[in-house]
């Protein structure tokens, strides 16, 4: 008895009106569930307060030539090195063909003496040495990652070791001659 009411009687392959209603209802239900889930998923994205601290102003005036500082930007270290003439010359004298991830030094800096880049090894996320005096700067005078032995040059480009790419350059601009805004 229940069965007789259950199917609407059409056993052909055309599909019944009930099939149509079921499918459209299921589709609308899926849209509704997706719409309800989206706020829950999106809430796990960076919140407004995290986005608000996504830019950072850095005063470059106190940094002498040859010195480097590390600043925190979006929870990761950013290396800022005031490069010497020799370091710049070395970075610009390299053949592009010798680089695993070819990029000219000119592409990686806005002003030659200021190198700004994210200080996170592109291999597995360790922080390379080379910022402080006396630290191992690697074979190319730039940075050396102690985790798995990646060597970076004075332009932060990968030269030897397992890291696949150069240290990335974050978006930044010079607000004045001695101040940059990162992010």
């Amino acid at each position: 008895m229940a069965e007789a009411v259950h199917g609407s009687g059409h056993e052909d392959n055309e599909g019944t009106r009930r099939d149509f209603l079921s499918l459209t209802a299921a589709a609308m239900g899926a849209v509704a569930v997706g719409g309800a889930l989206w706020p829950l998923i999106d809430s796990m994205n960076p919140a407004a307060d995290a986005l608000a601290v996504a830019t950072l102003d850095v005063n470059l005036a106190p940094i002498e030539q040859g010195q480097a500082i590390t600043v925190m930007w979006r929870g990761t270290p950013v290396f800022i090195r005031h490069r010497t003439e020799a370091e710049i010359a070395e970075a610009r004298g390299v053949e592009l063909g010798d680089l695993p991830d070819p990029a000219t030094d000119e592409e990686r800096v806005q002003k030659p003496e200021w190198l700004v880049m994210v200080g996170v090894c592109t291999h597995l996320g360790c922080i390379p040495l080379g910022q402080k005096v006396g630290e191992n700067k690697g074979e190319y005078g730039g940075w050396f990652c102690p985790c798995h032995g990646s060597h970076y040059d004075t332009s932060g480009r990968i030269r030897r070791g397992p890291a696949p790419t150069n240290l990335p350059v974050p978006p930044y601009e010079f607000a004045s001659d001695t101040e940059i805004t990162i992010g």
Partner: peptide, 13 residues
């Protein structure tokens, strides 16, 4: 309050 103001859709949740 952070949930209400800063988290995406936090107020709704």
């Amino acid at each position: 309050e952070r949930i209400m103001r800063d988290v995406n859709y936090g107020w709704a949740i």
